[in-house]
């Protein structure tokens, strides 16, 4: 119960940091442009999934950018600013704080979905109607939750790695491709597909597309897989964050002085 309160406080802290430092929101400027580009490219192709894709892809890219760039910065920034040491000195594990902050970051990413929908509707007069709104809403929610777990994992990987920038730059496109974000994974070579099955984005993308088109099969299974992948990532991320703290206490490398 106390830990939930800490998560909530950390969430609020991050939200306030974002409000006071608008660079956290910069990525939301990119989303409408992505939607616009995708629509402009495919509007005249008369492919039925063009609109669905143009709305969903920027939303998911927004989530991923939030998870990778912004969530990945949470721990390193505390280290650089000398907050890491006093945080480790507190009885609540750092992991709990990071979960709350990462969740707030990712929710900002989720705004990209709404933005993208609005861009298509207002900018292009193309209103995305969803055949199965219930499933669609559940899929968006599950996707956001899984994104929090994944952001936690990425945050842990980035905090542990010595090559932060390289990682942050290289972990985007491969996942857009594996996640079937911009195009369905069915167009990928067969040998790649098993890899994309462990990326929650691929399940999300498919479920969102199917819900929009009304071609959903086994939605419960898809939701369960999305949530399970998110939970696994969360557990992995929490474990890695604990290792960051343990490593610092052992090596004495991250400190205040």
């Amino acid at each position: 119960m106390t830990y939930l309160r800490v998560v909530w406080q950390a969430f609020r802290l991050q939200a306030e940091l974002a409000r006071r430092g608008p660079q956290h929101l910069l990525m939301l400027l990119v989303t409408p442009m992505q939607t616009a580009s995708l629509l402009a490219l495919t509007l005249h192709s008369h492919r039925p999934d063009a609109l669905v894709n143009a709305v969903i892809a920027p939303g998911m890219i927004g989530l991923w950018v939030a998870a990778l760039d912004y969530a990945g910065r949470v721990v390193p920034e505390d280290q650089w600013a000398g907050r890491f040491t006093p945080m480790v000195a507190a009885p609540v594990p750092l992991t709990v704080v990071v979960v709350g902050r990462v969740a707030a970051v990712v929710l900002v990413g989720a705004v990209a979905f709404a933005e993208s929908w609005l861009t298509a509707a207002v900018g292009f007069g193309r209103v995305l109607t969803v055949a199965e709104p219930g499933v669609f809403a559940a899929a968006v929610l599950a996707t956001c939750l899984a994104a929090v777990g994944t952001a936690m994992l990425l945050s842990g990987v980035i905090a542990l790695s010595r090559a932060r920038d390289v990682l942050q730059n290289s972990l985007s496109y491969p996942f857009y491709i594996l996640g079937g974000v911009v195009f369905p994974i069915t167009v990928l070579p067969a040998w790649v597909r098993p890899f994309s099955r462990v990326v929650f984005l691929s399940w999300s993308a498919q479920l969102l597309r199917d819900a929009a088109h009304g071609t959903v099969r086994h939605w419960a299974v898809s939701l369960a897989v999305i949530l399970a992948l998110g939970a696994a990532a969360l557990a992995g991320g929490m474990w890695l964050t604990r290792r960051v703290v343990d490593g610092a206490r052992r090596k004495g490398t991250v400190g205040f002085a």
């Binding site: 306030e16 006071r20 430092g21 600013a81 000398g82 907050r83 006093p86 000195a89 009885p91 205040f256």
Partner: peptide
């Protein structure tokens, strides 16, 4: 950790924007 308080000198270690 619950029994001790740590105060490090210097001007870092806070959320500056808050």
């Amino acid at each position: 950790r619950t029994l001790v308080g740590l105060v490090l000198g210097g001007d870092r270690g806070l959320y500056d924007r808050l």
